[in-house]
Design a protein around this nucleic acid. Structure first.
Lengths: 228, 228
DNA sequence: AGAATACTTACATCTGCTGAAAGCGCAAAA
DNA sequence: TTTTGCGCTTTCAGCAGATGTAAGTATTCT
């Protein structure tokens, strides 16, 4: 049974949605507490998130972006904001569908089914800048083709993709590759990073791993492949 | 550059759409002749099909269904039919998006980009009975997970999936695995087939490779994993 | 310049895929 | 029931690619 999380502050609306979805055969969780929403939602690991944009205290767009950055869960935005630029913005941030209230029940259910179907089998795909990474096999989809990354390189890239725009400390990377945080072999990490960088440049990926002295590494977008 | 095919009978509308899409950086083909549309469209092998439902002589829904059955090309329906049941029907038949005319340019472009993004990397995916096979890396997607098949097993499965419901002669299989048709080592083939069968059963795939005495092999659906 | 940090290269080891070989099992024909 | 041939299984050695080690080079900051 598929599992849907509802993010909606108005109690009545939330109840109505819950009912509708339960009757349609989904397992439903409603979120009513909006502190730490992102982590709370991801902890539920639903098959789909139904998201209202007007929430108390937090920015719905921001939430959408965070969800998409930290996971690959499908997000369906259901909101009363019917401005085109809101729709475009949400889609830009990674929303998978955008519907405006009021919305016919049938349409909502149909679009939900549509989105769920789209994501079948894609559960483990992590999104990069113009490419996708399978978290299980480390198959990388880029430029309409695909390559398998060696395990270590895959694990490293995975960490970077789950920490976009953050500085990732070496310990985190070591932990991701070798499991335990016991002994950190900086050199082994170094070698593996070099290898990842090499394959990334060979694949013309427009992202680069750059060192941050003393702290760790960061994945940044690089418009130019070679330094002049 | 992504390639879009437009199926629309009104000349003015078609021209306008073409212009818009070209300016947005797509390569565009307009279809104005509606005999044999399906095969004609698939011959173009576009990255996306923009489909009107009201066409002279043919049924738009039927066309949509055919396209989806014979290929995995994304279809965006753009129509003046604004009845909910039309939308539901189209989505049911496999349409990937449904927009009604009149439609804001920005929305159309945004949704097109959205659909294209969804299909990124899916170009090389071959469809099996409840699973997907990447023809390049031989990554197999099944049961919401993924595995990498060894090259030979992947090649063999690929042949079977491109010859559904046909008896595949050994030569074909050998040719697929070792390239040349020079010398056929029946035993090597045998071993590799056994290996593929083993992984398929370990993965609980509901398809089985069965021998056809003297001719070759065939991939059949098996409802039951073990023979009683 | 000197120290600290970051990178490169080469090599030995290890894992897992592959084909060869040899022998077993089963189904159709005698 | 026996024979015959085709299909299947298992084992083993070879090979390729991924990994960690080690030693040496380059860069950056002070």
């Amino acid at each position: 049974m598929k599992h849907i999380a509802i993010v909606e502050d108005e109690v009545l609306m939330r109840e109505e949605l819950s009912d509708l979805l339960r009757k349609a055969g989904y397992r439903v969780d409603g979120i009513s507490e909006f502190q730490d929403v992102t982590s709370r939602l991801l902890a539920l690991s639903p098959d789909l998130i139904l998201l209202d944009l007007n929430l108390p205290g937090i920015n719905g767009f921001q939430l959408c972006r965070e969800l998409k950055q930290k996971s690959s869960v499908p997000v369906l935005v259901l909101t009363s904001r019917d401005e085109l630029h809101d729709e475009l913005h949400a889609l830009q941030l990674g929303a998978d569908e955008y519907l405006t209230k009021p919305c016919r029940k049938e349409r909502l259910l149909s679009r939900i089914a549509n989105v769920l179907k789209r994501f079948e089998g894609r559960a483990n795909l992590l999104e990069g800048n113009g490419y996708l990474l399978d978290r299980k096999t480390y198959t990388l989809y880029i430029h309409n083709s695909s390559v398998i990354l060696p395990k270590n390189q895959g694990k490293l890239l995975e960490v970077f993709l789950t920490h976009k725009n953050e500085i990732v400390p070496k310990e985190t990377l070591c932990h991701a590759v070798w499991g335990t945080a016991e002994f950190i072999d900086e050199n082994a990490l170094q070698v593996n990073l070099t290898r990842l960088k090499k394959t990334m440049s060979e694949l013309n990926m427009n992202q680069q791993i750059v060192p941050v002295r003393g702290s760790g590494y960061k994945l940044v977008i690089s418009l130019f492949t070679e330094r002049g």
